[in-house]
Design a protein around this nucleic acid. Structure first.
Lengths: 205, 205
DNA sequence: CTATATACATACATCCTTGTTTGTATATAA
DNA sequence: TTATATACAAACAAGGATGTATGTATATAG
């Protein structure tokens, strides 16, 4: 069969993306060929080349599909003035991300690909800058929350919010890396939320 | 020229390893061919195949050459009973690693390759387990130091050493990842030691 | 109803890359 | 001194992988 409607076409595009995510995860980005992806999506390389210029474009599509919404949500959780105190807000936003990783297969796979199934050279090197930029944004958001916590006199000791935010960000960054590497869940996944909780409790008065 | 003495042979072996490190760094592990490595080492693929079974073996050689001594040194710094207090001992051991990254080119390159220029699939997947094991060891060492700090009544608040050690480990793990990604040094490298210092100060009474 | 653009499938040409095999000069052991 | 193992270089064989070019059926616009 050929020539579907626009909806059909969009559907095969999505199937190619999903197939690519599975193949990238299993074989790594560089060892994945367009033939692997195509056959896993039950189409031919012709279809893949119709929807994407090359493998790199598929990679970016996968990345954006997961990370663009994620960044928005992270921003919301941290900025939203809920009825919790700022420290709990930080704790919840971190735990939410862990929850998403547990429940959202696409997100979990995408994280794993970006962290340990991809080589950041040539066309992929630009992604590193984007990652660093996102980190800066998140750290700033966390800092704002710590500033609110400080003004509400919730913090133990007299540490400045900037340093606290950077420390929290690095902690969480490390946690995510370990979470991903901990396949069987025996080392980090099972206690991720407790680690977050005690990290935040370190700062509580 | 052919057939050198044993010392000559060992020397070319080392040149191949050094060449591979450079090539891996520039092109990523999977895009690096044995021809790239050979020509960069000014030998032919024949020499490479003589010294190594394949690319994977070179990869492991690079890894072991840097990480085996590193682990030993990290152990020493943390276990050695110096005249500093345990918290300073932890701080110093982390700062030492940063110093090494700054000064030791091979180590810096190797870290970068392992973190962002390598895909952990198939033959490389086993490395993940080794990484997790190393992390466990280091965390335990840090925990012992925190226990000493606790018994010397150096800690602010009443947090258990295990949680503190895990938090420190995750923080440092995140820091190393960011350190590597921060090419121009504008975001993390320049303040890495300050970040370590304030992380430790968070725990100080 | 017809023409055209769309959404693919198929076929083709080219370039690497890998692993192995063979050749060879020389250090070294006997 | 000679035989053999060593430390490579050079040649060989074969299989992918990529990008493009071409073919084609059909939705859709006019």
């Amino acid at each position: 069969m050929v020539r579907k409607t626009k909806e059909d076409a969009e559907l095969t595009r999505q199937r190619i993306i999903n197939a690519a995510r599975s193949v990238f995860l299993a074989r790594g980005v560089s060892r994945s060929t367009l033939e692997h992806i195509a056959s896993h999506a039950e189409v031919t390389r012709g279809a893949v080349y119709w929807h994407f210029k090359n493998k790199t474009e598929i990679f970016h599509a996968i990345r954006e599909q997961v990370f663009l919404p994620l960044i928005d949500r992270m921003d919301d959780t941290l900025t939203m003035q809920g009825n919790e105190d700022p420290l709990t807000q930080i704790e919840n936003s971190l735990c939410d991300t862990i929850n998403e990783l547990n429940e959202n297969i696409e997100m979990r796979q995408t994280y794993e690909i970006m962290m340990i199934k991809c080589e950041y050279v040539d066309e992929f090197a630009t992604v590193l800058q984007q990652i660093l930029n996102n980190c800066s944004n998140i750290t700033e958001k966390i800092q704002l929350a710590y500033e609110r916590a400080e003004s509400q006199n919730l913090l133990a000791g007299k540490h400045n919010p900037r340093a606290l935010a950077q420390d929290t960000h690095l902690f969480f960054s490390g946690l995510l890396h370990m979470w991903v590497k901990d396949f069987d869940g025996s080392r980090f996944r099972f206690q991720a939320k407790e680690l977050i909780k005690s990290h935040i409790n370190l700062r509580r008065k």
